[in-house]
Amino acid sequence: MNEPGARAPLRNLLLRVAYDGTDFYGWQIQPRRPTIQGTLTTAIEEVSGEQVQVCGAGRTDAGVHACAQAANVKLASRIPCSNFVQAVNDHLPESIRVLSVQEVPLDFHARHHAQSKTYCYRIFREKICPPWLSRYVFPLPYPLQEEAMQEAARHYQGTWDFRSFASTDRSQHPRQKSEDKSYVRTILSSVLERRGEELVYTVEGSGFLHHMVRNLVGTLILAGRKQLPPEAIPEILAARQRSAAGPTVPARGLHLVRVSYPGHPDS
């Protein structure tokens, strides 16, 4: 039992969070702009009565969605995890939901301990995109060689320098940009498949660079339009120049599906 007036020991909580990113300026807190991290932080502080720092597994851009983003937060509140989910959700807009909460060791960090992340990108292929889907897919009704796109997607698998698929992150401090950071990432799985009216690209990797998934998809679309052969992907990787790859597709079709950790279930 704690001494009178003594602060309760901290707990570290792992949160799984889903959100519709349409109306937010991405995950990371920004001054005077609605963000996922900022909104979630405010809700947790209102519930716990403490100042907290919510650490996400990664930063999703403005307009990107999440099925199960991961974040951890340290706080002294003794609210049980099941009650914490409901209490925080009561303070959040309907576009953000905490799906689950579990206690983890104090040294656990949502970004540093992530084993892999999985994203999917949804391309709607019919002529008319229903309004209720338009926030979550990229409408592209024009002719595409889907088999060529599937073949190109397989070339992404493996450990490569993905500099050709990394956009400049303008939110970084100039000193960070000047550092010789690694562009090497491992893609564990890279699959494009037809699901009804949609083409869905699913990619799992050890980590991703800024706009990397959206640039991977933009390059697949070039392959689908016969503007580059699938076997050109290794050459694009070897070029290590952003201009060698395809354009950045819109954010609205991108979804963070899950973040995986050793010893911790995905949900």
Results as ranks from 00 to 15, higher is better:
Asp20Ile: 05
Ala223Phe: 09
Phe108Gly: 13
His211Asp: 12
Lys177Leu: 15
Gln37Lys: 05
Gln69Ala: 11
Ala8Leu: 14
Ala70Lys: 04
Tyr183Met: 15
Ser178Trp: 03
Arg240Tyr: 01
Asp169Ile: 01
Asn12Thr: 07
Ile36Phe: 08
Pro262Cys: 04
Leu192Gln: 07
Glu204Arg: 15
Ser260Met: 04
Ala43Lys: 05
Arg258Tyr: 00
Pro130Gly: 09
Leu199Lys: 03
Glu179Pro: 00
Glu94Ile: 00
Lys127Gln: 15
Leu106Lys: 06
Ser48Thr: 15
Ser178Ala: 15
Thr202Glu: 15
Ser206Tyr: 01
Arg194Glu: 12
Ala245Gly: 12
Val137Lys: 14
Ala223Asp: 12
Ser178Leu: 13
Arg7Val: 10
Glu235Tyr: 01
His255Met: 14
Phe24Ile: 02
Pro80Cys: 04
Gly58Pro: 07
His109Val: 05
Glu179Asn: 02
Tyr25His: 15
Tyr142Asp: 14
Glu231Leu: 03
Arg195His: 13
His112Asp: 13
Ser134His: 09
Arg252His: 14
Gln115Met: 10
Pro105Arg: 05
Pro262Gln: 13
Val101Phe: 02
Cys67Pro: 00
Ala223Ser: 11
Ile233Met: 08
Gln102Lys: 11
Ile233Leu: 15
Ala66Val: 01
Pro262Val: 07
Ile236Thr: 02
Ala148Arg: 11
Glu3Leu: 14
Arg170Cys: 10
Gly263Leu: 06
Asp180Ser: 12
Pro141His: 11
Thr118Val: 10
Asp169Gln: 08
Ala114Pro: 13
Ala244Met: 05
Val52His: 11
Gly21Asn: 06
Tyr119Asn: 03
Ser164Met: 03
Ser178Asn: 12
Val203Asn: 07
Val104Met: 08
Ala66Gly: 12
Ile79Met: 12
Leu144Lys: 05
Val101Pro: 00
Phe84Pro: 02
Ala76Trp: 04
Ile187Lys: 03
Met1Ala: 11
Val137Arg: 11
Val137Pro: 01
Glu197Tyr: 09
Gln86Asp: 13
Arg7Tyr: 04
Tyr201Asp: 12
Leu75Thr: 03
Ser116Cys: 10
Glu50Gly: 10
Thr41Asn: 04
Glu204His: 02
Pro262Ile: 00
Pro230Gln: 03
Tyr183Leu: 11
Gln102Arg: 15
Leu140Gln: 12
Gln102Gly: 03
Leu140Pro: 00
Ser182Ile: 07
His113Glu: 09
Gly196Tyr: 06
Ile123Glu: 03
Thr42Ser: 13
Thr22His: 09
Glu151Ile: 06
Ala148Phe: 08
Gln115His: 11
Ala87Arg: 14
Arg252Cys: 12
Val191Arg: 14
Gln102Thr: 15
Ala239Ile: 02
His210Gly: 06
Gln145Pro: 01
Pro130Asn: 08
Pro31Arg: 13
Arg154Ala: 15
Glu197Asp: 12
Pro105Asp: 13
Arg258Val: 01
